[in-house]
Simulated scan of single mutants.
Amino acid sequence: MPTQDHLSGAQALASGDWNAAKESFEAARREVDSSESLDGLGRALWWLKDVRAAIETRTRAYGAYREETRNQEAAVAVWLARELRILLRNDAAADGWLARAETLSKDVVDSSVPGWVTLARAETTSDVSDAIADCESALGIAQELNDPDLEIVSLARLGLFQVAQGAVDLGIALLDEAMAAASGGEAKDLQSVGEAYCALMEAAELLGDSERFAQWTSAIAELKGQLGFGPFDDLGSSTA
């Protein structure tokens, strides 16, 4: 059973109080060093922009989940793959974690993890057509299993790739839909909002028209100002 400190940490994460979340999960680990509290601490560290510590901590959480056979390790593995690629530009390590996530996700039932794996695969390819196909597959899984975070990020990535391929109107429509969902409070994890926003900014850069998405920028800026987007704050339009 989760300790009170663990529950407090989870509540702090949900409300965007990153320092309180870190302190609560650290306290929870002193009481009962569980995989869930270790994982929660890693999430809090990510939001506090300590990316390397977050990755190291969630890597340890992955090992703990494996020992406990908690069926959470595939989700952690694909998260590690994406963060290592996007934030640390460590493609070799990212490829290894993605391969591990693909293997583990084969045993996952009634979960959107395979969709996150497919999305991560889209982010590795230099072939835009393949990336679009993978994003469409991830989007289908998100909608089938009602994962709003995967849906938001898949829509945004798909829109970005469509813009990159030259299907500008379609790409903009997909990005608009992603931002409507993101700004409308559908996301369960604010990281997905940050990822969608970064995709939007890269699309604007490709189009050479920052004004096209100005209204979405204003809508998201309020949320960003309140809570921040963790390490994405420092990446600007280069993250996508």
Rank of each mutant, 00 (worst) to 15 (best):
L7V: 13
I132L: 06
A28W: 05
V153Q: 04
A164S: 06
A199V: 03
D169L: 12
D107Y: 08
K188V: 15
G42T: 00
S129C: 04
F232A: 06
V193Q: 02
W216Y: 11
L119Q: 14
Q162R: 09
A92S: 13
A28V: 08
A75M: 06
R43Q: 08
M201L: 14
G236S: 03
S183T: 14
R60V: 07
S8I: 10
T57R: 00
R121E: 12
Q72W: 05
S111R: 00
S237A: 15
L48R: 01
P2D: 14
N71Y: 14
E222S: 11
M179D: 01
G194E: 00
A138I: 11
E83A: 10
A219N: 11
E102R: 15
S192P: 04
S126W: 04
K224G: 11
G166Q: 03
G42M: 00
Q162L: 07
W216R: 03
G208C: 09
G16F: 02
A187D: 03
L98T: 05
L235M: 15
A94N: 05
D127S: 06
A54S: 07
D169S: 15
A21F: 01
E67S: 10
V113H: 01
Y65M: 07
L38Y: 07
E202F: 09
Q165K: 06
E67P: 03
S37T: 07
L145G: 08
N19A: 14
W79A: 09
L13K: 01
D130F: 09
R43G: 01
T239P: 07
G42V: 00
A101D: 02
E123W: 12
Q11A: 15
S137M: 11
R60E: 11
S111L: 01
E68Q: 15
A199R: 07
P114L: 04
S37Q: 07
S112P: 13
A156Q: 00
V108A: 09
R212Y: 06
V117F: 06
Q72A: 07
P148W: 08
A178G: 05
F161L: 02
A240P: 00
E151R: 15
D5T: 12
D130E: 13
C135A: 12
L98K: 04
V109A: 10
A54T: 00
L206I: 09
F213W: 03
L88G: 13
S238G: 05
S183Y: 07
A99V: 09
Q165M: 05
M1R: 13
A204W: 02
A14D: 08
L104Y: 03
W47N: 00
A182F: 05
V108N: 05
E195F: 07
M179V: 05
